[in-house]
Nucleic acid binder design. Structure first.
Length: 416
RNA sequence: GUGAGAGUAGCUCAGUCGGUAGAGCAUCGGACUGUGGCUCCGACGGUCGCGGGUUCGAACCCCGUCUCUCACCCCA
């Protein structure tokens, strides 16, 4: 037997109904906020991610599916989607100084990691990006949209964790201040934190080591080292979110794993996800487009881990989605009933009723049993008697009741 | 890349001291040729993840390997 590749999985019915509903909801909500869909290739030039996500990041360093294609080009299965969206906009000349682009996407991403709860090698993200707007109001509106989406899925009690990581100009000074503060404590650090201290001291703020956590409250904070413009941006965002009643937490130690973030960064965590508890993450990336050779264009976006989202989806939304697929089973009792069954199916479908046509053969008993297992809630039976009377028997498979209905009234009966 | 646990029928699992494998559910057939879910009877179904070793003999012990689960790392 050939199994699926490690860390990938098949999504099968009825679970795919839930995924479909989540994606439909995203499409609706995002459209209400003026976002349009964008689809970019799964395969991108390796250089795209090296330049944007950052050569020193774990994603680029050890998690990418990178290979040389038959033409000798180094290509990579995208580990995230923001770089691809930015690349596409630059390539097609769609970023102009004056224009604002609001886009969303949904699709598979790939990272070569050891699978565990909430983490797969192929995973799906639903994300949105705003390019061409640098103001705090844009950040706020993006988060408003995000919470509108989460709210429609039925999530309650979620809050967004917020921080500012400053800019390329003010961050180095902070990093040095942090390093200077942490170095005296190197003696109590394990190998992981020593490596972080050397390569990327910001990551030490994320440590899980209790001995190191102990000294973090005294560490310098990024918010105290922001340049005046970044500070003003941060404070304006907090005020706007308060006004909009978006639940947020200021998280001075929040850092992100992608190099391209500037100023605003955020994430939402959720219970029930195990150790990988980040449901979504995002932030501002004011240098990304220019780093790709485009005009200087600010941007901000988020990416939701769809696998994780579905994993902790509120029960009511899940149940509604599962119940949303319930075609009417149309049973031709004898082979002679097939022509009229086909014609009737066509009429019902034209009226917007989902019809699952059962093959004649094993008798109505077997057909009804099979229909119930497929999730049909109602069945329409057609046999010689009905054919002669111009009627059909409509059976409620849940209530176990039935009624004989004139075929001319069937559409109205089934819709009513 | 590191660590821990697990892999037996389609699914959930049992399998004693090492003696050539079982249950429930599901599936199929029958009781029941125009009305399902309950019940009863029967059948189908396994290279015990894979490979090697120890042994007269391995689902069971040993080694390797693959996959899954969880955690580290990292992130969505």
């Amino acid at each position: 037997m050939i199994g699926s590749v490690k860390g990938t999985r098949d999504l099968l019915p009825p679970e795919t109904r839930v995924w479909g509903r989540v994606e439909e909801t995203a499409r609706e909500v995002f459209a209400l906020h003026g976002f349009e869909e964008v689809r970019t290739p799964v395969l991108e030039p390796t250089e795209l991610f090296v330049r944007t996500v950052g050569e020193a990041t774990d994603i680029v360093h050890k998690e990418m599916y990178t290979f040389v294609d038959r033409g000798g080009r180094s290509v990579t299965l995208r580990p995230e989607n923001t770089a691809g969206v930015a690349r596409a906009l630059v390539e097609h000349g769609l970023v102009q100084a004056a224009g604002v682009r609001k886009l969303w996407y949904a699709g598979p991403q790939f990272r070569y990691e050891r699978p565990q709860k909430g983490r797969y090698r192929e995973f799906r993200q639903i994300g949105a990006e705003v390019l061409g707007a640098a103001d705090a109001a844009t950040d706020a509106e993006l988060l408003v949209m995000l919470f509108d989406f989460l709210g429609r899925l039925g999530f309650t009690g979620l809050a967004v964790s917020l921080n500012s990581v400053g800019t390329q100009e003010c961050r180095p000074a902070f990093v040095e201040a942090l390093r200077a503060y942490l170095e005296p404590f190197a003696g109590r650090m394990g190998d992981d934190d020593l490596r972080r201290l050397k390569d990327n001291p910001l990551r030490v703020l994320d440590t899980k080591d209790p001995a190191v956590k102990e000294v973090l409250p005294g560490a310098p904070q990024m918010v105290d080292h922001l340049d005046p413009a970044s500070r003003a941006h941060h404070e304006e965002l907090l005020a706007l979110l308060s006004d909009a009643a978006i639940p947020f937490r200021i998280e001075p130690r929040l850092v992100r794993g992608l190099d391209y973030y500037t100023r605003t960064v955020f994430e939402v965590t959720a219970g029930g996800l195990g150790a990988q508890d980040a449901l979504l993450g995002g932030g501002r990336y004011d240098r990304l487009v220019s780093d790709l050779g485009g005009p200087r264009t600010p941007g901000i976006g988020f990416a939701i881990g769809e696998d994780r989202l579905v994993d902790v989806l509120p029960q009511a939304f899940r149940e509604e989605a599962l119940a949303s697929f319930a075609p009417v089973a149309l049973v031709a009792i004898e082979p002679a009933d097939r022509p009229s069954a086909l014609a009737l199916a066509r009429t019902l479908r034209a009226a917007g009723i989902s019809v699952d046509l059962d093959p004649a053969g094993k008798g109505p008993g077997a057909a009804l049993k099979a229909a119930g297992k497929r999730g049909c809630r109602r069945a329409v039976l057609l046999g010689q008697r009905e054919r002669e009377a111009g009627t059909a028997v409509v059976k409620d498979l849940v209530e176990r009741t039935q009624a004989e209905v004139p075929q001319a009234e069937l559409t109205a009966y089934l819709k009513g």
